[in-house]
Design a protein around this nucleic acid. Sequence first.
DNA 1: TTGTCAATTGTCAGTGACTGTCACTAGCCT
DNA 2: AGGCTAGTGACAGTCACTGACAATTGACAA
Lengths: 208, 208
Amino acid sequence: MDTLRERKKQRTREALLRTALELFTTRGYEDTTVDDIADAVDVSQRTFFRYFAGKEEAALALQEMTETHFLRAVRDRPPQEAPMDALRLAVLDSWDTLSEVVESVAPVEVFLRMYQVIESTPVLLAAHLRRSLETEEAIARVLAEREGVDIDADPRPRLAVAVFGGVMRLTERSWSTGGDTSLDAIRALTVQYLEQVGPALTGSWRTD
Amino acid sequence: MDTLRERKKQRTREALLRTALELFTTRGYEDTTVDDIADAVDVSQRTFFRYFAGKEEAALALQEMTETHFLRAVRDRPPQEAPMDALRLAVLDSWDTLSEVVESVAPVEVFLRMYQVIESTPVLLAAHLRRSLETEEAIARVLAEREGVDIDADPRPRLAVAVFGGVMRLTERSWSTGGDTSLDAIRALTVQYLEQVGPALTGSWRTD
DNA sequence: TTGTCAATTGTCAGTGACTGTCACTAGCCT
DNA sequence: AGGCTAGTGACAGTCACTGACAATTGACAA
């Protein structure tokens, strides 16, 4: 990345991504065409598709980064922690250090606003959910290795991650539809929801 | 539904759907164009889009039916059952009575093969996951009402359903990638996975 | 410095999903 | 029988995306 060519490429990619996110968060995803993005950066449409597999990939680029970040956080957890504890502490740690990861591309607010765009754009939400599945699979493998179990023989790794993923998905949803769209808010929701998993699964909820 | 017009419409829709499923399961989803389907039924492409919002909707029509079926099964559970018990018994009941629902449109094998197509086609899987979210929301509302809690104040209904949904998603996945693609197999997997949720969430998995 | 090679880009043509419009046809109803 | 309306086909257009080829431009050695 020190040759002129590579720096140029880097700059083009960043320009495309930043412009795309800018347009998506202001004008909306569906109302932004790939041509709009390419024109704004002054490259051909074809070039956009050389950098991104599709419009979706650009829209989800930040989320991709944070999921990778989360995966790394899980890997870095001390091995003596129980699986669910490791997951919980890894997410919380991820939220706390998220800015550092995201800021290299765009301000955190853009990341946060993109979340709302995703949640309110059916095709984006769909794509996001599918990608989350892939992340979950990777995490399940990490957990399986930590605990020394065979991921194909023992369903617990994938099961734990699926449950955890379900809770996180719900967290994202209620954060993005709620009033407070700050990082602190999503952190607090995470804690709150994870605490409630146990109660939600056991017996009746009736208080009478 | 007894005028000639309506019978004709019904027939056109069924022909389109059956043909679409036939082509998707033999040739594959991506290798089937809407024109292929329309031509095979001898209607214009425009007509296809008058019956289905898109290619995806046709591909997921059977799954839509079974999800509605499942939702109904949840509603029909005796109210004294604990939420998670109601969900578990409702899915199992759904699998058992699935044929009746599906057979009106296509043989159950088509339904089962479509599941594999969905699981192996990224854009379909994505769309399927998103629709599942909508079903989950509906189920959460049913549970909340059963238990007499406020769905917006108490996170437990959505939480329970999210966890349950995560497990079901995993069940679908491992069924569709596994060897036995029968209804019995998916039923057995459902039972097995639900039993393992508890163990997966608690403490360490190490046996040493 | 220059010439060669390889990477990057633009242009163009094409496909496939989907939408709006409008005229036409065919059941429906009196 | 004749008017009304739902359903259809034909057509044109948009947008995401792809393959192919030619033009450009940086890299690197002679």
